[in-house]
Design a protein around this nucleic acid. Sequence first.
DNA 1: GGAACTAGCGCG
DNA 2: AAAGCGCGCTAGTTCC
Length: 574
Amino acid sequence: MTPDDVAWVVAGAAGVDIDLVRLAADGTEVSRVRVPTGEFAGRVQAARGTRVRWVWSDTAHWYPRLLAEGVRVERCRDLRLCHAILRDSALVADAAPIRSAREWDVDATTVPAPEAPALFALATDAAASGPPHDAASALAEFARQRAAAASAGGNGRLDLLCAAESAGALVAAEMRAAGLPWDVAVHERILEDALGARPAGGGPPERMAILAAEIRGLLGDPQASLDSPPKLVRSLHRIGVPARTTAKWELGQYEHPVIAPLLEYKRLARLLSANGWAWLDEWVHEGRFRPVYIPAGVVTGRWASSGGGALQIPRLLRAAVRADPGWTFVVADVAQLEPRVLAGMSGDTALARAARGHDLYSGIVDSGAVATRAEAKVAMLGAMYGATTGESGRLVPRLRRAYPRAMRLVDDAARVGEEGDVVSTWLGRTSPRASERWLRAQRVAAGETGSAVDRDQARRAAGDRGRFTRNFIVQGTAAEWALAWLGEVRVRLDALPPVPAEEAAPRSGAALGDRPHLAFFLHDELIVHTPARHADAAAQIVRDCAASAGRLLFGDFPIDFPLDLKVTTMADKA
DNA sequence: GGAACTAGCGCG
DNA sequence: AAAGCGCGCTAGTTCC
């Protein structure tokens, strides 16, 4: 914390009074009050603008109830999320105290989703699946975390990461509260265009039924099952298509009249089951899709989501994302985030030069390392994922020659992982340790009693782990860049003036519906929902924050993060 | 009849 | 039989 920081530690179980403990910048307790839950939101609102940081057990536990009352907070520290970072970080010199606080080891995915704040509080406390929420526990954990961070190397990088992670948790709660504007009529039109009319009394939609009849005719079996892979494989064998699986990449390799309609049927079946009318009924209410975002739900620090498949919305349906009347979107994504981050981490000026301007892959071609953009892309992905065979594996050595620093960084990360050690992202998030099972397999293979099968399995497991750690440092650092971007966008949008009540978007909620706010985030892309009059300002903020995120992580190193950005009322991809 | 698993495919 | 990372979700299948 900076010296002028004031922290209020918030604590209390659901349904009882809430303790507010004021701390000085050095962590000593200044004062303490106990307030009824009904006064909590008012207290928080009153503290806006005082540079307070709210320290609490779990943003998903505390923040939804504030948002429901129309109250935003400027900054917080999410003890649950920061605990996980500091507990595992290789930068922390003395991790023993924080590791001993096992009650804070709460897997993000076990935190229940808030249907409504009241229900959520009940669910959490009844199931006792969250971290402790009382004042003594929170104060002790905060002290442990400050000590752990103070013992860490890395010039404050972990402090930066904890701040960014906590800001992300605020964004996640706010985006759920605001929701993503979703036009049900447009979605239904897309479904009908693709699938045909919605069946009145069950059964498949019209176009799927016609396709199914055609396919069954070609299979020579009016009863053929198209939805069961084993049965479909047997049906295909009977007409001379020797497919082993029903995966589309394999089916696509056979020449037979049944293949084309079958692939089309599978595409439609997927759309129907994943995002059909049932999805719409379940997940879109009052013009908003409100998924549950799970910050750091992925080991690398990326977010996960729960319910509604928020991070897998098919491109086809993006046309259903429509701004409210008088509002618009700023849709922005970063071009080639991961290789840019790799250039920054490794200090590879040659790769940074290739990245300058806009298209990094074209820049690689211009440098002469490979001949085409497609080659540059597959080679770079192969380098970051650990490809060893095929076209990708063949091209990676060309990148090694052209960008030795960058390639050495990922190659070293892979070697460390193969040896069973951990790797860390730029800001210090550290990969999980090798499992006991993995270590045992390596010991057995290395020992005199190990069989050829043991050795083969161990080598494969080592390779798998090496590809994981290779990718971890890049994917994880990209996630950190994105958090920095997101967090700064949030703060700066919040500083824009609110619009008059008659121009507000009430469906986005009392806390956020009167001003530009984040509405969606997906790894390297965000959508801001904004009153039209603030669209240009919001777009500039999104651009400026990409630049400042780059500086926050990589200082003066000359790597830029260009955006594909557009201002539009329909958020199909930028 | 339900839990646990797999196949397949959507997203980055 | 995906080559090469990270996910979530649905339907079908297998096992208890």
